Amino acid sequence: MTAAADDAEGPTPIPAPVTRRGQAKAARRRELLAAAARLMAERGFAGVRLEDIGAAVGISGPAMYRHFSGKDAVLAEMLVDISQRLFGGGQDVLSESDDAETALRGLIAFHVRFATTEPELITVQDRDMSSLTPEARREVRRLQRKYVELWTDVLVRLSDPMPGDPMPRQEAQTRVQAVFGLINSSPRLPELDTARQSALLAEMAHSALLS
């Protein structure tokens, strides 16, 4: 590209700084989403009102509409957000890994950490996915498929000690989906020290993927 073209395009815009008020609003929104996850995990989507979510963090019912248009919007943001975070976190793991084995162990550790620290989200997604609007459900499914493909790519690479003879992709996808079921079962498992539970899940997941 010529210098003239560069001048015509102008400098790259600098993002506007986040104001203190904006930071406070974002923090309150995260607080509301965390409260919604807890309540919906306990009672189910149908058993929670928008007013209940607000009350959990000290916000009156009418004031909740400054944050969310309704309960459907809360559920949609909650489940789309976790799907985005999982996919983005998986991409970060791959970018920081030098080889397929390191990448696989990193992905397992990342997902185990999510499952053991945010169990309410797993419960809500498993039980209330059908309550999402069609548009939100399509977005969640799209992100989930991309996350599965990250894992599948790594597993296929790792299973190919002899070039040209990798694990069939469909089998790799099956193993990945099965391991998600294993790790995501953590909210329903008997109580165990978190560190020990995480180590067990990671060991079992690695063995299942490569058995």
Results as ranks from 00 to 15, higher is better:
A3R: 15
A3F: 14
A8S: 11
A8L: 14
A8M: 12
E9L: 15
P15K: 07
P17L: 08
V18P: 04
R20T: 15
R21I: 15
R21Y: 11
A24N: 03
K25I: 15
K25N: 14
A26E: 14
E31N: 13
E31D: 12
L32F: 02
L33T: 08
A34R: 11
A34C: 06
A35K: 07
A36M: 08
R38Y: 10
E42I: 00
A46L: 09
A46Q: 12
G47K: 03
R49H: 14
D52G: 01
D52Y: 07
G54A: 00
G54S: 09
I59A: 08
S60H: 05
P62G: 07
A63P: 12
M64F: 04
F68H: 03
F68W: 08
F68S: 00
S69P: 09
D72H: 14
A73M: 02
V74K: 04
L75T: 00
A76P: 09
A76W: 04
V80I: 12
I82E: 14
S83H: 01
R85V: 01
F87T: 06
F87D: 10
G88T: 03
G89W: 01
G89A: 01
L94S: 05
A100T: 05
E101N: 10
T102P: 10
G106H: 01
V112L: 05
V112Y: 03
T116R: 07
T117G: 03
E120Q: 09
E120C: 05
I122T: 03
V124K: 00
R127Y: 09
D128C: 06
S130T: 15
S131Y: 13
L132C: 00
T133M: 05
R138N: 11
V140Q: 04
R142H: 09
L143G: 04
Y147R: 11
V148C: 09
E149A: 10
E149L: 08
L150D: 09
L150Q: 12
T152C: 09
T152E: 06
P161Q: 00
M162Q: 13
D165Q: 14
P166I: 02
E171W: 01
Q173L: 08
Q177H: 13
Q177K: 15
Q177C: 13
A178L: 12
A178R: 13
F180E: 03
G181M: 08
N184G: 11
S185W: 07
S186K: 02
E191L: 13
E191N: 14
E191Q: 14
M204N: 10
A205E: 00
H206L: 12
S207Y: 10
L209H: 02
